[in-house]
């Protein structure tokens, strides 16, 4: 390989940050649920997949109706996808997890795996097992660098992904730290029994957690649909695995940790692909996870007292 190029390095950072933003959005759902009820919601990847499908359908529908303003398409799609996917999140919690509250830890975990398989097959039957593809809605971008050499390319879509991710993360952080419901969330996360005794409706808080997680997964789904343009009923599995890794890497239960974990994972994959072989990107990503866990068993930003319930 030829030598190091700063412009290529910059491009790889852009690639990694885009990928990492998406991982982070999905990772939030894992981390919030874990932080509050100490359960890994394995169906979360499928919730994201549903978000992507709804996004694709709405975008296709809008373009049939002749809507061509990017802002309008984006707002309507995000709103509908969040609404639909959020209600899936709520329903899953209500039907598959709430009845099992108070049972041993493994029971809801198995229920989650069941929901994951159910949703995958449900979408497969309803939408077909084929890939659904869509042409890009937002194309173009900026190019920097010498006209005859390597040019860094930053697409509008990548900027949009970064902006939307930061906006939703900031919104979530403010919601958790400032609002009444957010305070209730934090209380439940610290001690659910005590919160209950103090008059917080913990069931409601848990339902809210699932809706919020699903809403962010819907955002990720819509962005992925617009960016890559390819959706099938199986995308939730790999995305879920990566996002779960990001959540653990950052410290499961910690919201800033999930964001950091996502970005670190995205960058690690990008750099491994760039400076080693593409084959090794997952090896590097997971080796990094093991290393971090060896040094900091609670993840990058995890709290040491995470073991509870």
């Amino acid at each position: 390989m030829s030598g190091f190029s700063f412009l290529e390095f910059l491009q790889q950072i852009i690639n990694g940050l885009t990928l990492g933003s998406i991982y982070a959005l999905i990772a939030i759902g894992y981390t919030m649920v874990y932080g509050i009820i100490g359960m890994i919601n394995f169906a979360h990847g499928e919730i994201y997949m549903i978000g992507a499908y709804v996004g694709l359908m709405v975008i296709t529908g809008l373009s049939l109706l002749g809507v061509d303003s990017i802002a309008a398409i984006l707002l309507v799609t995000l709103a509908i996808s969040i609404l639909v996917t959020g209600s899936y999140g709520w329903t899953v919690e209500r039907l598959a997890y709430r009845p099992l509250r108070g049972s041993p830890r493994l029971v809801p975990l198995i229920s989650a795996i069941g929901v994951s398989i159910f949703l995958q097959n449900y979408v497969q039957i309803g939408q077909g097992a084929r890939d659904v593809s869509m042409q890009p809605v937002l194309t173009g971008g900026w190019r920097f660098g010498p006209a005859d050499g390597f040019q860094v390319y930053l697409s509008y879509m990548q900027v949009l992904i970064a902006v939307i991710t930061v906006a939703f993360m900031t919104g979530l952080t403010l919601f958790i730290s400032r609002s009444r419901l957010g305070r209730a969330c934090r209380a439940c996360s610290e001690d659910r029994t005590m919160a209950n005794l103090l008059g917080i409706d913990t069931d409601r808080v848990i339902a809210l957690t699932f809706i919020l997680g699903a809403a962010l997964a819907a955002v990720a789904g819509v962005l992925v649909g617009m960016y890559y343009g390819l959706v099938n009923p199986f995308i939730g599995f790999i995305a879920g695995l990566k996002a779960f890794t990001a959540a653990v890497l950052g410290g499961i239960g910690s919201i800033p940790g999930a964001m950091l974990g996502g970005v670190v994972l995205g960058l690690a994959e990008s750099f491994a692909s760039a400076y080693l072989q593409t084959e090794y990107k997952d090896v590097v990503a997971f080796a990094l996870l093991i290393l971090v866990l060896l040094v900091r068993p609670t993840g990058l930003l995890g709290r040491p007292d995470v073991e509870k319930v």
Binding site: E8, Q11, Q12, N15, V224, L230, I235, A274, T278, K281
Partner: peptide, 10 residues
Amino acid sequence: GQTDFSALIT
């Protein structure tokens, strides 16, 4: 099943 090839393309 990989969806992001940007690093390889770069």
